[in-house]
């Protein structure tokens, strides 16, 4: 069983985590959901499309204007409360690396803390334990939040990602986070060049073999763009190909911009794997 705050899911369930940015400057939507009402419309849309999780973020990942704790809280805390009351059936994740923000959003009703910067603030796991919410343990190679990789090197990026994320998950268990509420994420492009992200995709089965549920965040990222030499806005096909490989290797949660397309790919792969029966069967069997 996977337990994300108030919500539980079967061990073989795959989940769509839809990105909802409360930012004026995120790379893909460029502020399309910066206004609170626009962000709420985005939530309505992805819930209608079947997303099980919304991942609300108040700070873009790339370098830019400094967003302090107070500003981050202004962007996300009340919004979490609004989503909680309007959509009690959806899992609310918040993308933050700060324990102080984590605490505020948990009080507002968050179910999951998506620590996209790899445990930079060790207090975040303590907040997850205190509020009995779920936690994503990511690998950034020790990168400082909101920095780009520059000449990063690993002996073995997959081994490093596994060692770090599993170590963080075990540390979280030690702090009191429920074992069934922990996810690990290799964090494509975070502290990694494109070859690192490709290798993590190719060898994702090693990560799923740890037994911890694996979250992947592939959507429209630079490793897709560089692989195909395509700009943001033309990366959906490449994203879906990477999604298919990750799903084949057993990834469970998919952090996405495009819910409908990703759900189709993930269900198709699960059907090919034999984990999911076809939706309907008639051909040759009537």
């Amino acid at each position: 069983m996977l337990r994300l705050g108030r919500h539980t899911f079967a061990d073989d369930a795959t989940l769509m985590m839809a990105i909802v940015n409360r930012t004026p400057d995120s790379f893909y939507d460029r502020g399309a959901t910066w206004a609170e009402e626009k962000a709420l419309e985005r939530v309505a849309q992805v819930v209608e499309q079947g997303a099980e999780i919304v991942d609300i973020g108040g700070i873009k990942a790339a370098p830019g204007a400094v967003i302090d704790v107070a500003e981050e809280k202004t962007r996300v805390v009340d919004f979490v409360a609004r989503v909680r009351s309007a959509y009690p059936g959806v899992v609310i994740s918040v993308d933050t690396w700060r324990a102080e923000v984590g605490r505020a959003v948990c009080e507002a009703g968050a179910d999951l803390l998506n620590d996209a910067w790899g445990g930079h603030d060790p207090g975040l796991a303590e907040v997850a334990a205190e509020f009995d919410v779920a936690l994503v343990c990511t690998h950034t190679g020790g990168a400082t939040p909101r920095t780009r990789p520059h000449r990063v090197a690993y002996d073995d990026v997959v081994a490093d990602a596994i060692a770090h994320t599993v170590g963080e998950a075990e540390r979280a268990v030690g702090l009191g986070v429920a074992r069934e509420s922990l996810l690990i994420d290799p964090a494509h492009d975070f502290g990694k060049n494109t070859l690192h992200s490709l290798e993590l995709t190719r060898r994702l089965d090693e990560m799923t073999a740890t037994g911890w549920p694996v979250l992947v965040s592939l959507s429209n990222k630079d490793f897709v763009g560089e692989s195909l030499d395509l700009p943001v806005g033309e990366r959906l096909t490449g994203t879906l190909a990477a999604t298919a490989v990750a799903a084949w290797h057993g990834a469970r949660i998919f952090r996405v911009h495009e819910v409908v397309e990703t759900r189709q790919v993930v269900d198709m792969v699960a059907t090919i794997r034999g984990d999911l029966a076809p939706a309907r069967l008639v051909r040759g069997l009537a």
Binding site: P278, A279, R280, L281
Partner: peptide, 15 residues
Amino acid sequence: AAPLLLPEHAGRADV
């Protein structure tokens, strides 16, 4: 005698 009546040939939705 339709094979689609068999559980091993059933999809997620009953057709």
